[in-house]
């Protein structure tokens, strides 16, 4: 079924929202991991494993 211009607009909006949500999720995991490493919860290779 062909999409109307309005449908196209909504699909673009959804795609943007998914992209933003994914980017936010990546940032969240990254920041969380950095904080845990800084606090010594996750061992840092160079410090605790030794390299």
């Amino acid at each position: 079924m062909a999409m109307t211009p309005e449908d196209e607009k909504r699909r673009h909006g959804r795609n943007r929202a998914i992209a933003l949500a994914l980017a936010a999720f990546v940032i969240l995991i990254f920041v969380g991991s950095v904080v845990k490493m800084t606090n010594g919860v996750i061992p840092q290779m160079d410090v605790e494993i030794g390299r």
Partner: peptide, 9 residues
Amino acid sequence: SRQASAGDY
């Protein structure tokens, strides 16, 4: 029916 918007979700 119509395409759902991000706002619908």
